[in-house]
Design a protein around this nucleic acid. Structure first.
Length: 359
DNA sequence: AACTCGGGGTC
DNA sequence: GACCCAGAGTT
């Protein structure tokens, strides 16, 4: 075994954090952790991880859960497609693989929601296979260690890191080595102000030798994101209001919200917004008054979401709605998975006493 | 290769 | 504001 690998493993043995998915060898639990950790920080995942496994302790319980319960467990974690794909993976393991988990990265990667990184993680950690993995941490560590100048968010740079990772993953303790690499990136080889003085592999780091660790890894800049405006309708009937479910295919799929449309800009006349509700949702309403407003930033656009108290005009229009819907009491909201912009609106509408006393 | 798909922490 | 995080899937 090479010096880099020995140094990193020795460092990992005494400096690794006590993360909940590291004290188990249950493939199911490790699978759940890896999916949750995609593009999501360790500290964010931990409470979700515990709650998820408490409700769904094994692969069969996940395979059989209904989507609404599943999404409620995922609520606030983001990238909700991950949860639905994870369930599909569980179903394939139960029904097609007879409850036996894949035995290699190649087999893992055939399952939905498991790409190159996650397959490498599961192959090495669960199966003990000598297989590499590259995530944001590994890109940063290796880009600095080997002075990779190519942008790591483009194919060339990514391939360069994968080549190094494939060459360096050891036959012994591949799972620990891969985790050590990520642990180093998460706690020492930080994006900003890396703690080079305590780095166990500082003597192997080209960037440190050149004093350019702050300039690596190189990334191609992303373009700025557009601003969008949305209008939501608070439509009350007796003590209840109308909630719609978003289509499972698109963004925030399967989650619930007030009837909501995208509008071209902020200062449309009420009449014009009403026409958009009609054409987009088949919902004929009369807007009464602005009640709440929330802003939110997604990865590829920003949104300003307004909420208007409204009246339903055509009583039968609900029968032609393009989405699943429910009339619910405000106390029932907590039973539905709701995305964060709408949570912000609900907080303004219901949590403060002066607002919307419901008729 | 570019785009879609969340949310939150950080500076 | 911009950047980034144990990325994957689609076009």
């Amino acid at each position: 075994m090479r010096v880099i690998q020995q140094s990193l493993l020795a460092w990992y043995d005494t400096n690794s954090r006590d993360l909940p998915w590291r004290i188990t060898s249950d493939p199911y639990k490790i699978l759940v952790s890896e999916i949750m950790l995609q593009q999501t920080r360790v500290e964010t995942v931990i409470p979700y991880y515990h709650r998820f496994l408490e409700s769904l302790p094994n692969i069969k319980s996940l395979a059989n859960i209904d989507d609404q319960t599943l999404l409620k467990l995922w609520e606030g974690l983001g990238y909700y497609r991950r949860a639905l794909n994870l369930k599909r993976t569980a179903q394939q393991i139960v029904n097609q693989l007879n409850c036996s988990f894949p035995s290699s990265a190649e087999e893992w990667e055939k399952l939905p929601g498991i790409g190159r990184y996650t397959a490498g993680a599961l192959g090495s950690i669960v199966n003990g296979e000598q297989t590499a993995l590259v995530d944001g941490n590994v890109k940063r560590v290796y880009a600095r260690m080997f002075n990779i100048e190519l942008p790591v968010n483009e194919k060339n740079g990514e391939d360069a890191v994968w080549d190094i990772a494939n060459n360096l993953v050891p036959a012994g303790r591949p799972g620990d080595y891969n985790q050590a690499l990520m642990e180093l990136g998460a706690t020492v080889c930080l994006s900003r102000n890396p703690s080079c003085s305590i780095c166990p592999v500082i003597s192997h780091c080209k960037a440190f030798k050149l004093g350019i660790q702050d300039k690596l890894p190189a990334r191609k800049k992303k373009k700025s994101v557009p601003q969008r405006t949305a209008a939501s309708a608070i439509i009350q009937r007796e003590e209840k209001f109308l909630l719609l479910q978003r289509p499972t295919n698109g963004m925030l799929g399967g989650l619930w919200e007030l009837p909501t449309v995208i509008i071209p800009h902020l200062d449309l006349k009420y009449q014009e917004i009403e026409a958009i509700f009609d054409s987009q949702l088949n919902l004929k309403i009369k807007i009464i008054k602005l009640e709440a407003s929330a802003r939110h930033a997604y990865t590829h656009f920003k949104i300003h979401n307004l909420a208007f108290s409204s009246q339903l005009i055509a009583q039968d229009s609900r029968e032609r709605l393009r989405h699943p819907y429910k009339w619910i009491d405000k106390d029932q909201i907590s039973g539905f998975p709701v995305h964060v912009v709408q949570q912000k609106l609900f907080a303004q509408l219901f949590d403060s006493q002066q607002k919307l006393s419901l008729q």
